[in-house]
Amino acid sequence: MIAVLSHELRSYFHSFTAYVFGAFLLAVVGFGAILYNLQAAVSNFEYVLGFGTIIFVIIVPILTMRVIAEERRQKTDRLLYSLPISTTQIVLGKYLALLAVYLIPLAIISIYPLIFAQFGEVYLPTSYGSLAAIFIMGAALVAVGVFISSLTDNQGLAAGVGIAVILFNYYSVSLSEYVSSTALGSAVALAVLVLALGILIRYLTGSEMLAYAVCLGIMAVLCLISFLNPGSLEGILPAIMKKLSLFDRFNTFVNGVFDLTAIVYYVSVILLFLFLSVQSLEKRRYN
């Protein structure tokens, strides 16, 4: 794992990736700091971070697009498989390297509240609370990006899909107000979601049986619920979309609350997508 980690880190700093990622993050946060803290003279640094999250839509996919896709394109995945390291170690090594690249601009940003505190009253606990939260939220997005990169051997495709997924996640709360909140609309949308899940399962495990079983199982439960209590499905789709949003949960931190449930949610997202990435790599051996 250490070997993969140091190898990845070296390659990030040999290429532009790490620098572009850091530069963009610093630029947006710096711009936010000028806007909020200097011009508007607001003393809450967390607002700046709240403003800065939109940049993740672009920079996270750019950072993660090549992480596994490139190994496949260069056929170096064969080397990784033949080395005495497990796929879990490969994914963890790569993920930790990405986190290190992500931590460097955050470390620089973490000085800002201290600087501002020299010139006025800054409430540091909320500033650092939301800094910690933005780290974990970004870490969750990076995990999603790693998984998307593991699905293809085309960096561009990985970046495109990554941007689409994170953008959808970013706007899912606003979008949730426009989607149908009737029971029927929700049921149809859920059915589509379940089908998508089934296709993902089919792709990852190669087992049609399992995909059908999961799909039909969830569908049956849904039918049962809608049959027994038709009202319960009402508004469930917007609710799910709100719940799934990684960005929405971050607003709690911006408002000055350190929300442990959100942290648990982020950590679960990280674990889930790292697990899926390992499975996706393993699956390549069973093609």
């Binding site: 993969v4 390659s11 170096t76 080397l79 080395l83």
Partner: peptide
């Protein structure tokens, strides 16, 4: 197909593989 990281030098590459082993 030799599994090589094209933008590295052979020395860096061998370091990585050796460490992984």
């Amino acid at each position: 197909q030799p599994p090589l990281y094209m933008n590295e030098t052979p020395l860096e590459y061998l370091h990585f593989v050796g460490q992984a082993k």
